[in-house]
């Protein structure tokens, strides 16, 4: 886990804190290993010689999927708010988030 470029436990802890995930030490070890394997696969692909191959943004060779600018009925407000654990003044009530950094 110390080889250069490989995902570290600190990387996982950082990403978890950005997503407000609280991981135990055991979970950090577990996910560091699992995520590293996923990324190892990506490095395998990255190691291929792709000179002359155009970058691919999407698995489907399709561009310009568009819809006309026409209003379509959305959802009834009562139905929407019934899904929320907490509601006040017809708004979603959520825990206060101070700033964006943990």
């Amino acid at each position: 886990m110390t080889e250069p470029g490989r995902l570290t436990r600190d990387d996982v802890a950082h990403v978890a804190s950005l997503a407000r995930l609280h991981l135990s030490d055991e979970e950090l070890d577990l996910f560091t290993g699992q995520l590293a394997e996923v990324l190892d696969h990506a490095s395998d692909v990255a190691s291929l010689d792709l000179a002359g191959v155009a970058p691919t943004a999407h698995a489907m060779a399709v561009v310009n999927v568009l819809r006309p600018d026409e209003v379509r009925p959305g959802m009834d407000r009562e139905e929407v708010l019934a899904q929320a654990p907490s509601v006040e003044d017809h708004r979603f009530r959520v825990p206060r988030i101070l700033g964006e950094a943990p």
């Binding site: 907490s86 006040e88 003044d89 017809h90 708004r91 979603f92 009530r93 959520v94 825990p95 206060r96």
Partner: peptide, 8 residues
Amino acid sequence: ADYSLVDY
């Protein structure tokens, strides 16, 4: 109070 209200 210590919460936020959201209108989407």
